[in-house]
């Protein structure tokens, strides 16, 4: 084996592959049992038969190269796996929402990891325990795609909407996943493997209690804006009237001056009840606005101008709207 290629030494192949293909003469197998040979390409280079696998074989797998010369007995070479398992280092960094008092119709969690994770085992690794430590049955929308970001460092976990919406849960089966005035713990199993295949450094627990359901639309007009002084780079602070969705409030709020976005860095504080914006350049005196995309949601999925539950079809406007709400403010006198 040389640089990822498998080479038959000491045998001169003809220039053309035999009728049954080079694979009939030389095959490389990944694994021990009765497995098909690895996919790859065969070439004759410097009178040697060379096999390049389609993918670099996993280092933790045993490889077996078998040369079956047209005459004579087969020759086998075995490449033992390298068992160099790394030590656990990936952990859960944070779970949003940060608050430990969630509405009964809480819609989602965002689980942030310190390093990229493995896909395909989320639903075995996330549990919701009730106050007695008993797992709640199927509280989450277990979609097989798993809602990761591109880096596999943030997983979005949706509560099953069928167990949130008013009246949607059945009479026969149990009701909502979260019940008011009860306590729960979100448990993230330490066995969850990161992208290297190594488990987490430890289990993660988020204990919380449940308050009343939140069923009103988000109204930016109720927010309090704390305006910084001119010529400073102090943060503009927006106090929400309730905790907001962390990912969306980082993405869907912006500051404009004369219709032009102001460069700066947004951040969340006070358990996602406050949005802060630090400008790249000192604030200038003048008229500004905070622009809020109406896709912004609170913890229960209520949007700007539209609650999560819409009862009557006719009340909904005829077109899908992706508009925004503008909150004007002035810096300086």
């Amino acid at each position: 084996m040389e640089g990822g290629s498998f080479i038959v030494e000491g045998w001169r192949p003809g220039p053309d592959a035999p009728a049954s293909g080079w694979q009939s003469i030389f095959s490389v197998y990944a694994g021990d049992n009765d497995v098909p040979p690895m996919l790859g390409t065969y070439t004759v280079e410097n009178s040697r038969l060379v096999f390049r696998p389609r993918f670099e074989p996993s280092p933790s797998i045993r490889l077996r190269a078998v040369f079956r010369p047209p005459s004579g007995s087969p020759v086998e070479a075995v490449f033992e796996p390298k068992h160099a398992k790394a030590a656990p280092s990936t952990r859960v960094e944070h779970v949003y929402p940060s608050t430990d008092l969630l509405p009964a119709n809480q819609l989602k969690f965002y689980i942030h990891f310190s390093a990229p994770m493995s896909r395909g085992e989320a639903w075995q690794r996330i549990k919701l325990l009730d106050g007695q430590g008993v797992p709640v049955e199927l509280p989450f929308l277990e979609i097989e795609q798993e809602l990761w970001d591109r880096d596999y460092r943030r997983l979005t976990v949706l509560f099953d909407p069928g167990r949130i919406k008013r009246g949607l849960y059945s009479l026969e089966e149990a009701g909502p996943a979260l019940e008011e005035n009860r306590r729960y713990t979100l448990v993230i199993d330490s066995g969850w493997r990161d992208a290297r295949g190594v488990p987490l450094t430890g289990e993660y627990r988020k204990a919380f209690s449940v308050g009343p359901a939140l069923r009103s639309a988000v109204e930016p007009a109720r927010w309090k804006i704390h305006v910084p002084p001119p010529e400073s780079t102090d943060a503009l602070r927006v106090q929400f009237d309730r905790p907001m969705d962390a990912a969306l409030s980082m993405r869907l709020l912006s500051v404009l001056r004369d219709g032009v976005p102001v460069a700066g860095t947004p951040a969340l504080a006070e358990m996602e009840t406050e949005w802060r914006f630090v400008p790249s350049q000192p604030w200038k005196e003048g008229e500004y606005s905070i622009v809020v995309d109406t896709f912004l949601e609170d913890l229960a999925g209520n949007r700007v101008g539209r609650p999560f539950d819409v009862d009557v079809f006719e009340q909904v406007t005829k077109r899908v709207e992706n508009s925004s709400v503008s909150l004007p403010f002035r810096i300086g006198r």
Binding site: Q145, W148, D245
Partner: peptide, 30 residues
């Protein structure tokens, strides 16, 4: 990597009468 963290998971797609119909679910807004 400087990319948006928002992704829309494609949950199903079908070809129907000259159109590809695609169902998707965002990892941020519901």
């Amino acid at each position: 990597r400087g990319q948006s963290r928002r992704l829309e998971s494609i949950t199903d797609l079908k070809y129907v009468n000259g159109n590809v119909i695609v169902a998707g679910l965002s990892n941020e807004e519901f």
